[in-house]
Every structure is written in structure tokens, then in C-alpha cells.
Design a protein around this nucleic acid. Structure first.
Length: 869
RNA sequence: GGGCGCUUAGCUCAGUUGGCUAGAGCGACUGGUUUACACCCAGUAGGUCAUAGGUUCGACCCCUAUAGCGCCCACCA
């Protein structure tokens, strides 16, 4: 006997262990396969709702496919998250007054490893709490030996293909992290700044960064700008705070003649635009800001100052020299590091880059960019929702060479070795023992590590054993779905496509499902600084259960759209979970053990009432619909449909009707099918109930149901609809007329052609409408002093002599009649319209006609009743 | 500056390729210890589907403009 209410925390851990110990998460050996590489959470901390939603969605997909007979692999893992992790550990050490340099590379890395091991075990535990049916025997970590080998292998190959090169180029530099950042790792923040107008030799020009004047080597103007035409190509000496310096005037399309004076100072070493201009015109670079964000030695008295200090000092000096013309308020976008928020310093530096514009043989003469765009354009990779295609193309088309070297310690060290004796450079997976040129063994490995997205870009295949040609790789790659937040489409999804098409000449996944961000009830971003609206998934699991949390994240959310989450919503789904439990409780109380395994044959061979036929019909329709919806990734729709079926039909009607007349085989059969359908959504409660039905196998391994045509009963479906409508009408009538609900009143039904049906279902009607007496006749004269309603051609009377207010009832009927008339008018207008009758599909017209007939017949009956009152 | 999304009942959201003068949950209100469930049951109220045009026999749905909110991208110094 089940407890009165379901308490999730009493069962969830036990059930999860049961699945694990049965090896239920391991892919079967079926031929058809389905696979998802779980986006690896950063190994830096704990799970948040962003993880919870991804786990819920992916688990639904995996469980569904597993039940549907696919060998399904859901591969879990973690990411070393280079900069994020290093920053975190540095912060912890800083509290003890230690810097990473105090410890040295090796000891510092040991600290990081300890930290990671700890958070990994937290994460594993939390993934389990969500009910995620991932295959732990396949768990991977981006720094595993195998995965590291894949990273070095790709690096080496790309180098050999000429795709990876070392260049002295301008990069985004975070002075706090002490490292480069990729273009998309830079955030922009609106800043109230100033625009300074400088007297600049023969020019007058505006800048937001006067301190960079020390690094200027040119002035650029628009080629068509008449004001400066004569000056193009000439050199000028410009008076400056450190004496005069020379610039050359160049003409470049990048200059906007409308802005400022139409002339811009060019600081090639510290601005992306200027760098490009300088490159186009062969203008020299002059680097003046170092990697700590300080002015370099070549800046005279300003050397050693931070850029901001220097800006202040240089403005004062320029003002004294009369070089500062005016200052205006100016808002602009300040670029900051996405990890730590520090203002990013563009500077030139020797770094490793991936050339995205080089045509290569391996890709049939296409560039990395072109190939990445192609696989989405030709539909090999489908993005859901597909409006993100456009965003993806735009990003890819504008992608610049990807800077992959980072000056941090935590990560995959670049497999490049330099000979200290002859300066030869070697790139190889295995560290070389001797210099290939001078054969001496005085070698030094490059200090830098790789961008964290370099390794995660390989995630779908490095986790399956590549570069070895493993069985897993053959079976499960390309993966079926990549499910992740739309906020990392560029960071990760795009990079996986780029890296995988290069490495394997194969797509990494067939479908990309992008979920939205989880927000508060009022639509704000959840942040830990606002604990009152910031929901911790683990708290919610503790309080309402994982099943309830999963539903609250999945139902009402669609790909690409943000979702609002709040506690009442989760509580609501907890109620639904309890409803599942109680429906099962009722069924268990009404069947015997021999019915637990009733199959389709048993059901069809049993004596089926109209009610049974109706619920079987609906069940099979629901099976068909939800399966279609799941195939379309319409998870929310699928979930809603089963929710409504269980609560609104099975519980509200079928179980209630079973209290009069039950068929234990049908009760058992339908309940079990519902459990199967619900299992991907609410795995825990369904498995617990399943257990109580003494099933030999676990529900997680139960096959997904298919529609059975022998269980579709069209006639009974519409008959039961009439019965339901009659009951609903009687209930409404008595409540509207303030008749005490508990009072067992009498009803008279003139059933017309439905006499047989009514007589068969009279007990059910009596019970569900709480009637004391029910008289069923084929027809008769209108009853006075009675409430009345009509369903199809069935007339219902509630004779309430003495209890009813005739005036009130007249008004009520009058109102109903008026509404009906309006309705009929509306339909008639439509039918009188030739355009409609001729152009609308036949079914639509026929439907309207039938509706009109029905309404007219009912109207007539109501009218007569009104007259007789 | 470019691109995208959203605007439906008090709140949170559904509404499939145009065809029930629009649905659910929560909240409100009325009333209920009936063979599971008060985490429940029965019922009621509440919407010119942001605005203005257009296409169509027919628009919440398609098109165009407008407004408000939000997001992404961008080297206007």
C-alpha cells in the first residue's frame, strides 16, 4: 500500500542507485544509436539552474530514445575551464597572501588539481540528484590523458597544414589575468568618458585615449576627404609632450569623415582599427603599453604609470603646452575581460593563431570558415530554433584568426619546443629529446597554454577515444544532439563545428538544441547577490523533488526562449507528481496482483465497457501525439499533453467512472502506459510506482509504446463525450442555481436516440452529478419548475419545485438563448458568404453546417422550455 | 549603426502548416471530509490577442508601419 502522499526525497537516491547498479545507463547493443555529449560543466564549482535545465532536457531526450530502442549514450564530463579555474584558485590563495608566482608553476598546478578534484565530485553528485541517466563509465575530463593527446594531435596537424602560425599581431590583453583573450571573450560596457580634442601639428583631432599619442606613427584620413587631400602621403613633425615626433598621413576607407575632424591619429600597436590601417599602408608599429597595462620604458617620464595615470598626467602636460583644445563628454563602449571585468588592453604580442581564411586540401580546398558555414547551410547541422542560423553565419563570416595561446598555467601546454642553442622550433605531440637541427638536447617548451575552447572544441570526438579509431567513435559519432544554452553558440558550438569538420571531415552533431536562460519571475537574471529570487536547484530538489524541478524547467519552455522560474511553479508541478502517485494508489487499491501484467491481448479480450473503450482510444491518441512531439523536440508540448491526459481525463473521468464499474485490466494497462510516457519527464516517481506494480524489469528499460489501431473506438469516444457533457451540465446547473451540492436531487433525461447510452451510463451519471434519482425517457413534455439544459439532442431537466427561483431561471435561460442566437447568426453569416462556401475546404464548411444544425436544435428545445416556465 | 526576439486573463505562459467570436496553471470568488489525492474536488468571474493599416471568404497566426521591453553583434577614434 502506498503512502498517502509522495515524498520524493524518501525515494530518489535509492532509485538512482538502482538504475546505476543495473547498468541501465549504459548503451544497449542495438544497431540504431543515439548520443549526446553532455556540455561539460566547468570544474570550478557547483551546479546552477543553467545546468539543471540542460540536464533535464537532455535526460528526457536520452530516456525517450533509450526506451524507443536506440543504443543511447549520454556522455558526462567536466571542463578544466582554464582562465576561470585559475582565477578562482588564485583568489583563494590571495586570501592567504600567496600569489601563483610565490608557489611556482608546478606547486600552483598541484593546488589547482586539488581544487578541481573536489569540485568534480560535487558536480557528479549534483548531476545524479537531477536524475540524469548519463553513462558514468564514459565520464571524461578535458585534461584526461586521452583528451590531452587529441588536443596535441590536432595542434600538430594544424601546424603541419599551415593553419596554426605564430605571429606578432594585435591581441586583446587582460592585464589582470595576464593573458590574451579571444575576440568573443571580450565584453563591452557602456562608459561615460571624455572626448579630447588635440592640437596635432597641422591637424586638430579627437581621441578618447590621449595617452596613446606616445605610440602614434600616422594620421589617417578618408581618401575622398577634400580637406586633407593634399596632405596624403606627406610626413609631418608633430609637437608632443616628449618632443616632436614624425607621422605620415595615409588615406584609408576605415576613416569616417563625419566623425570628429575627419582625421584620426593612428596607434597601430594598441588599437585593432589602427593596426589594420598600419598594415595596409606599411606604417611602423610602436608599442608603448606593456603586459601589465603600464607605460613602457620608451615613454620617458611616464614610464611605469598605468594607462589611466598616464592619461591624467599627459593631459595636464598637453594643456600646459597649449595642445589640448577642448574636452567633451562622450559615452563609449569600454572593452572588458569577460572573466574578471578588467579593462582590456589591445596590444601587439607574439602569439599562436589559427588561420581561418586559409584554403586547405583536407577540406577540399575550403577554408575553416567556409566549411563551418557550409555544413549549416546544407542542413547537415540543424540549429533549433533556426533563427540562430543567421546569427551563426554572421559570426562565422566575420571571424578573424583565432588567437589560441594563453599566458596562464592551467591548461594544455602548447606542444612547441625551442632549441636553446640554435633557436630551431619543433612542433610535436611527443616532447622531442634532441634538436632536429643541431642535435643538442638543450630544449625548452613554450610557456603558454591553449585557449580552453580549443580543447572543448574537440569534445564530441576526443571523448570517444579519438585519435584512436575506437568502436565508440564509429558508433556514436557524429553525436545526435548538442543541447546547450544559446549564450555559448559562438564560444563553443561554432568552435566544435570548426574543429570537428577539420579533424574528422565530419560534423560533430546533427541537431543543435539551444535552450534559453533561466530568469526570475520578473524576468531578471538570477544572481547570487539577490538570494530572494535566486533559486538553488538543490534546495528545490530537497523540498519538492527532482521530478517537480525538471517539469518546471521543461514545460512552458521552448528552444531559444528564456524561461522564468519561481517557487510556486515548482510547487505546482510537485502537486502533479503527487497526482501521479495518487492515481497509482487508487489503481492499486482497485486491482489484484494478477492484473499487474495485463497486456494488450488481455485488455482486448476482457469485457470492455464504453468507458474502457473511450480511455483506450484516448490513450492511443496520446501515445501517437506525444511521440510525434518528442520527435520534433517539442518537449514542452509533449509533457503538457501527458499532464492533461493523466489529470484531466484519466483521473477526473476514468477513475471516477471506475468507482461505479471497473475493469482492472484496463486500469492497470492504462496506468502503466502513462507511467511509460511520463518516465522521461518524471523518472523517479514513475519508477517507484512501477516498482510497486511488482514489475520484473525497471521502467527505465521499458519499450516505448506504439499506437495500437485495435484500441481506437470512434463511436464510444463520442458517446462518452456526451456523457461527460451531461454530467458537467448538471453540475453547472445546480451550482448556478445555488442548489446545495450535497443535496441528492432528481433528474429527468429525454434521451432521444441516445436512450440506450443513457440507460447504460445512468449509474455513472447519477454518481458523478450527485443525483438521488434519475429518470431516463426517450422523450416527453417539457417539465415546469425545472432547470433545463441540452446536450446534442439530449434534454436534461432538474425538477426543483419549491427550491428554484423561476425568475432567476428565466433570466439564465434567456441569457443562454441570446448567446446561442448570436452564435447562430455568426455561423449563418459565414455560410451566406459565397466566398466562404466556395473557397474554404469542404470539411470546414461541413463542420460549420453541423454546428449550425446542432445549435438550432438545441435552441428550439431551450425556447420551448422557456415558454413552459 | 546592424541583426534578432517578445508584447494573449491580475501573474507565468500555451495556441502546430491561417478555419471553435482564444486555452492551461497560479491567484481571486462560490461551495464541498463523495472507494486515490485539501499537494484534492465541483463551479464562477476575468481577454477589442500592444497599436494602426493591408492581404484573404476568413487573421492571435501572413505582410507593412508604429510604440514599449529585451537580447546579440560592431574598429566610429
Amino acid at each position: 500500500m502506498l503512502e498517502k502522499a509522495y515524498t520524493a526525497k524518501q525515494f530518489e537516491d535509492k532509485i538512482y542507485k538502482k538504475w546505476e547498479s543495473h547498468g541501465s545507463f549504459k548503451p544497449s547493443d542495438a544497431k540504431k544509436t543515439f548520443s549526446i555529449a553532455m556540455p561539460p560543466p566547468n570544474a570550478t564549482g557547483t551546479l546552477h539552474l543553467g545546468h539543471a535545465i540542460m540536464l533535464a532536457i537532455q535526460d528526457i531526450l536520452i530516456r525517450y530514445k533509450r526506451m524507443d530502442g536506440y543504443a543511447s549514450l549520454w556522455l558526462p564530463g567536466t571542463d578544466h575551464a582554464a582562465i576561470a579555474t585559475q582565477n578562482k584558485v588564485e583568489k583563494v590563495l590571495a586570501e592567504q597572501g600567496i600569489s601563483r608566482h610565490d608557489l611556482g608553476r608546478k606547486k600552483f598546478l598541484d593546488e589547482v588539481k586539488k581544487f578541481v578534484a573536489n569540485s568534480q565530485s560535487t558536480i557528479r553528485n549534483q548531476i545524479r540528484k537531477m536524475g540524469s541517466s548519463c553513462d558514468w563509465s564514459h565520464e571524461r575530463y578535458t585534461l584526461d590523458d586521452g583528451l590531452s593527446e587529441a588536443v596535441l594531435e590536432i595542434f600538430t596537424r594544424m601546424y603541419e597544414d599551415g593553419l596554426i602560425y605564430r605571429g606578432d599581431r594585435i591581441v586583446n590583453w587582460c592585464p589582470r589575468c595576464g593573458s590574451t583573450l579571444a575576440d568573443d571573450e571580450v565584453d563591452y560596457k557602456e562608459e561615460k568618458g571624455k572626448l579630447y580634442w588635440l592640437k596635432y601639428g597641422p591637424f586638430s583631432l579627437a581621441t578618447t585615449r590621449p595617452e596613446t599619442k606616445l605610440g602614434d606613427t600616422a594620421v589617417a584620413v578618408h581618401p575622398k576627404d577634400k580637406r586633407y587631400k593634399k596632405m596624403i602621403g606627406k610626413k609631418y613633425m608633430i609637437p608632443g609632450v616628449l618632443g616632436d615626433f614624425e607621422i605620415v598621413v595615409v588615406a584609408d576607407e576605415a576613416v569616417d569623415p563625419e566623425f570628429g575632424s575627419g582625421a584620426i591619429k593612428v596607434t597601430p600597436a594598441h588599437s585593432f582599427t589602427d593596426f589594420d590601417i598600419a598594415k595596409r599602408h606599411g606604417v611602423p608599429l610602436k608599442k608603448i603599453i606593456d603586459e601589465e597595462g603600464r607605460m613602457m620604458k620608451n615613454c620617458g617620464k611616464y614610464a611605469g604609470m598605468t594607462t589611466l595615470e598616464c592619461r591624467k598626467a599627459i593631459l595636464e602636460d598637453m594643456d600646459k603646452m597649449g595642445l589640448l583644445e577642448k574636452t567633451e563628454d562622450y559615452n563609449h563602449q569600454l572593452s572588458v575581460c569577460y572573466r574578471c571585468g578588467t579593462s582590456v588592453e589591445p596590444l601587439t604580442s607574439k602569439q599562436w593563431f589559427i588561420d581561418v581564411n586559409k584554403k586547405i586540401k583536407r577540406l577540399g580546398g575550403k577554408t575553416l570558415k567556409e566549411k563551418s558555414i557550409e555544413v549549416v547551410k546544407d542542413g547537415s547541422v540543424k540549429i533549433l530554433p533556426n533563427r540562430f542560423n543567421k546569427t551563426y553565419y554572421h559570426w562565422m563570416e566575420n571571424l578573424r584568426d583565432w588567437c589560441v595561446s594563453r599566458q596562464i598555467w592551467w591548461g594544455h601546454r602548447i606542444p612547441v619546443y625551442y632549441c636553446e642553442d640554435c633557436n630551431e622550433m619543433m612542433v610535436s605531440v611527443q616532447a622531442p629529446k634532441k634538436c632536429t637541427k643541431c642535435h643538442k638536447s638543450n630544449l625548452r617548451q613554450d610557456e603558454d597554454t591553449l585557449d580552453t575552447w580549443f580543447s572543448s572544441g574537440l569534445w564530441t570526438f576526443s571523448t570517444l577515444g579519438w585519435p584512436k579509431q575506437t568502436e565508440d567513435l564509429k558508433r556514436f559519432h557524429p553525436t545526435s544532439v548538442m543541447e546547450t544554452g544559446y549564450d555559448i553558440l559562438f564560444f563553443w558550438v561554432a568552435r566544435m563545428i570548426l574543429m570537428t569538420t577539420y579533424a574528422l571531415n565530419e560534423i560533430p552533431f546533427k541537431t543543435v538544441y539551444l535552450h534559453g536562460l533561466v530568469r526570475t519571475k520578473t524576468g531578471e537574471k538570477m544572481s547570487k547577490s539577490k538570494p530572494e529570487t535566486c533559486i538553488d536547484p538543490l534546495d528545490m530538489i530537497q523540498k519538492y523533488g527532482a521530478d517537480a524541478l525538471r517539469l518546471s524547467l521543461v514545460i512552458g519552455s521552448s528552444p531559444g526562449n528564456d524561461i522564468r522560474l519561481y517557487e510556486e511553479k515548482i510547487a505546482g508541478y510537485r502537486n502533479f507528481v503527487n497526482k501521479i502517485w495518487n492515481s497509482a494508489r487508487f489503481v492499486l487499491m482497485n486491482i489484484e496482483e494478477k492484473d499487474y501484467n495485463a497486456n494488450e491481448k488481455d485488455v482486448l479480450n476482457s469485457e470492455l465497457s464504453k468507458t474502457d473503450k473511450w480511455i483506450l482510444t484516448r490513450l492511443n491518441e496520446v501515445i501517437e501525439d506525444t511521440t510525434k512531439k518528442l520527435e520534433k523536440y517539442a518537449l514542452s508540448d509533449a509533457g503538457t499533453e501527458i499532464y492533461d491526459f493523466l489529470w484531466g481525463e484519466f483521473c477526473d473521468w476514468y477513475l471516477e467512472m471506475s468507482k461505479v464499474n471497473k475493469n482492472p485490466k484496463v486500469l492497470s494497462f492504462v496506468l502503466k502506459k502513462i507511467l511509460v510516457l511520463l518516465h522521461p519527464f518524471t523518472p523517479f516517481v514513475t519508477e517507484v510506482v512501477w516498482e510497486n506494480l511488482n514489475q520484473k524489469n525497471l521502467l527505465i528499460n521499458e519499450p516505448w509504446p506504439k499506437k495500437n489501431k485495435d484500441m481506437l473506438f470512434k463511436k464510444e469516444k463520442s458517446e462518452i463525450k456526451i456523457v461527460k457533457d451531461i454530467i458537467t451540465n448538471i453540475r453547472a446547473l445546480r451550482v448556478e442555481s445555488n442548489v446545495d451540492v450535497t443535496r441528492k436531487i432528481k433528474a429527468v433525461i429525454y434521451a432521444g436516440k441516445h436512450e440506450g447510452l443513457m440507460k447504460k451510463k445512468s449509474t455513472i451519471i447519477s454518481r458523478m452529478a450527485n443525483l438521488g434519482e434519475l429518470e431516463i425517457l426517450k422523450s416527453g413534455s417539457k417539465l415546469k419548475n425545472a432547470l433545463m439544459s441540452v446536450v446534442e439532442d439530449v434534454e436534461i431537466f432538474l425538477p426543483l419545485e419549491g427550491l428554484m427561483d423561476i425568475d432567476k431561471e428565466r433570466k439564465r435561460m434567456q441569457k443562454e438563448i441570446t448567446e446561442m442566437k448570436n452564435n447562430i447568426d455568426f455561423i449563418e453569416k459565414k455560410l451566406a458568404n459565397d466566398g466562404f462556401v466556395n473557397k474554404a475546404p469542404k470539411e470546414v464548411v461541413a463542420k460549420e453546417r453541423a454546428r449550425r444544425e446542432d445549435l438550432i436544435a438545441r435552441l428550439e428545445k431551450l425556447r420551448k422550455q422557456l415558454e413552459s416556465l
